[in-house]
Every structure is written in C-alpha cells, then in structure tokens.
Simulated scan of single mutants.
Amino acid sequence: MMKGLKKWRLFALLTALIVFLSGCGKNYLSTLTPAGEVGREQHNLLLLATAIMTLVILVVVVIYVLAIVKFRRKKVGENVIPKQVEGSTTLEVLWTVIPIILLLILAVPTVALTYKFADTKAMDAKDADGKAKAVTVNVTAKLYWWQFEYPNEGIVTSQELVVPTGEKVYFNLKSGDVKHSFWIPTIGGKMDTNVENINKFYLEFDKESKDLETGVFYGKCAELCGPSHALMDFKVKTLSKADFNNWVSEMKASKNHVASGDLEKQGEDIFKTSCITCHAVSGDGKGTGIAPNLATFGDRNRVAGVLDHNKKEIKKWINDPQSVKPGNTMPQPEKINNGKKFSDQELDALAAYLMGLSVEK
C-alpha cells in the first residue's frame, strides 16, 4: 500500500513540474530567451553559475557513492575501520583552495558586469548641436501603474514603454509611493525604484516586438508592493530608430487630438467632466503624475495592464476598478459621477473615446 502511495506521490510531483515548466520559454517574457545585450550577459552568468553548482554536486555525489560502494559492510566486514584522513594537510588545502577558485570564477564576471551595467555616463553625452545622443526614460512606479517620461523628446506615456532597437536606452528609476522594482525579463534587469533616490542603468533591445506572439515584451514589478502587486504589469514596444522617431513626432502632435463620431464626442464630454482632473490625453509634456497618461490608450496591448484590450474590458475597468486591481488609486465611478454608476450608454461612449486615443493609427 505504502509503495503504491509513494509512486503516486512521485507521479504527482513530476506532473506538477511538467505543468510548471510548460509556462517557461515564451520569447516575450522569459529570461531564458534574452533579446538584448544585458539579458544575454545575465543569461551567460546564470549558465556559468549553474555549471559550477552542477560540477560541485556531481563531485560530491560521486565521492559519496564511491564511499558507500567501497566501504559497505558486506564487502569489508563488520570490524574494518577505513583509513582515517582527519588532519590531512593535503585534503585541507584542497577543500579550501578549490572553493576559493570556484568563487573567484563566479565573482569576477559578476562584479565586472555589475559595474558595466551601472555605467550611465553616456546618458549625458550631447552632439554638436547640444542635443542628447542617447534616449533616456524617466520611469516612475506607482500603485499599480507605470509612467514613462522622455525628457529629451518632451513626451510622456504610461503603461506601455516604447523604445528604439539597436542602441542603449538609459533609465532613471524612482517610485511615487512605495518601493517597486522595474524588470523586463527577456531584456534584462531588475532594479528597484525607490522613493528617496534615483537608480540608473541601461538596457539594449535587439529586435522589434512586432514579430512577437503578442506584439510586445512584458515588464513586471518584481518587488512586493501591495495586494495587486502581481497585476502591476507594463508592456514594451520596440521599434526601429526611424519608426521610433515617427512615434515621438506623433506623440507631440497628440495634443491636437479631436474626437470623431457622435459616440466618441459624447465620451469626450463625459471624460472632461469626470476624468480629466487626473488623466492627461496628450503625450506632449510631462504628464500629471496623478494617473496614467492616456494619449496612446487605443494603441495599447492591455487595459489596466492585465485585461484584454477591448471595449467590454474597458467598461469593466471603469465601472469597478477595485474588482480588477484591489488597492489601486483609481476612484469608483460614484466618486466622479455625482454619486452614481455610469450608465451603459455612458460606458459605451467612454470606451469609444478611449479607443480613439491613438498615435499609431
């Protein structure tokens, strides 16, 4: 009975492991499929550490098995005591020097890469015209959303980071409330965002995200920050340099957006009386910092970072944001709509207006 039970336990463990591993390997969210210089270097470091640990385990297991086989009682008898090696200078030197060597093999590249990725001096480099050479993004983490400001371009967006490929992109990381952590698993990271100081580092993006299964890379908050920490996602859209420059131009022009169609115009009117206090709909400038900038809402991959990007989910989010992300700072509709819920007609109008906020269509 017990043997059968143990077999089923092993089977259950293997099944759970297979299910767990089936979630690995997606090229838009896995650290095992790096798509940038930082991600590749970190991946190589992970492989080196794994190889060292595997070597140590194998050596220990081999010695352990040999000792069991060679000195088992059936072979050497009951009263045989193997040669004692306590105090052996040779062995003491070996198991002191070998771990030191292994630690050095791992420590040297780790320290070197740590300093390399922290080198952000090029962030301040300027060309002959006094313009910044590198793309810099000021990242502000909030409960539970992300703001991305491009100070050199004079634009701001939220929830979806847009960057050029083939060059280093520099980041200034800070938090607007509690400690968070900025992480794009496939590209590299992670680094904390703090309230009291700014952390700096860079990433490099190798390929355009349009060829990915979802059209974007996935970013996460990697620091437990509240009840909806697991839902604090953002997406990363990587473009060629030319397409990125076009996107910047369109973002600057978004301040001239005009709603089209009766339903969108109705939604714009509702938005201006209920939502405009917190949300900006122009990508030009620095943004309010109170709530996500919505200039590119129609271009996004997700609603609130986690819901499917369609009108049904937009209405669900507006009607009851706490049911989607508990603890978020978006008010319930009663607080901004004279003490009552939005009607279906009003929700349809707001959804139509928000889907029309686009710089890519």
Rank of each mutant, 00 (worst) to 15 (best):
residue 12 A to T: 15
residue 14 L to P: 10
residue 20 F to L: 15
residue 21 L to E: 14
residue 24 C to R: 13
residue 25 G to W: 11
residue 27 N to R: 11
residue 31 T to L: 14
residue 40 R to A: 14
residue 48 L to H: 10
residue 51 A to G: 06
residue 52 I to S: 01
residue 52 I to E: 01
residue 53 M to L: 15
residue 54 T to I: 14
residue 57 I to A: 07
residue 57 I to W: 05
residue 63 I to K: 12
residue 66 L to K: 10
residue 76 V to C: 06
residue 77 G to S: 01
residue 81 I to W: 02
residue 82 P to G: 10
residue 83 K to H: 10
residue 85 V to W: 15
residue 88 S to P: 04
residue 89 T to C: 02
residue 92 E to Y: 14
residue 92 E to P: 10
residue 100 I to P: 05
residue 104 L to G: 03
residue 105 I to E: 05
residue 126 K to I: 14
residue 136 T to A: 07
residue 136 T to C: 06
residue 139 V to G: 00
residue 141 A to Q: 04
residue 143 L to D: 03
residue 149 E to G: 14
residue 150 Y to A: 03
residue 156 V to M: 08
residue 158 S to L: 00
residue 161 L to C: 07
residue 165 T to N: 00
residue 169 V to N: 06
residue 172 N to K: 12
residue 173 L to E: 01
residue 174 K to T: 05
residue 177 D to Q: 04
residue 183 W to R: 14
residue 184 I to H: 05
residue 200 K to I: 02
residue 204 E to G: 08
residue 206 D to T: 03
residue 211 D to E: 10
residue 215 G to Q: 09
residue 220 K to D: 00
residue 229 H to G: 13
residue 231 L to T: 09
residue 231 L to K: 12
residue 233 D to R: 14
residue 234 F to I: 12
residue 236 V to M: 07
residue 245 N to G: 00
residue 246 N to S: 06
residue 247 W to M: 01
residue 249 S to F: 00
residue 251 M to K: 06
residue 254 S to L: 03
residue 264 E to I: 07
residue 269 D to E: 14
residue 270 I to N: 04
residue 272 K to H: 00
residue 277 T to I: 13
residue 277 T to L: 14
residue 279 H to E: 08
residue 286 K to E: 10
residue 286 K to G: 11
residue 287 G to H: 08
residue 292 P to K: 03
residue 305 G to I: 12
residue 311 K to L: 12
residue 315 K to E: 05
residue 316 K to P: 02
residue 317 W to I: 11
residue 318 I to Y: 02
residue 323 S to P: 08
residue 338 N to R: 03
residue 355 M to G: 01
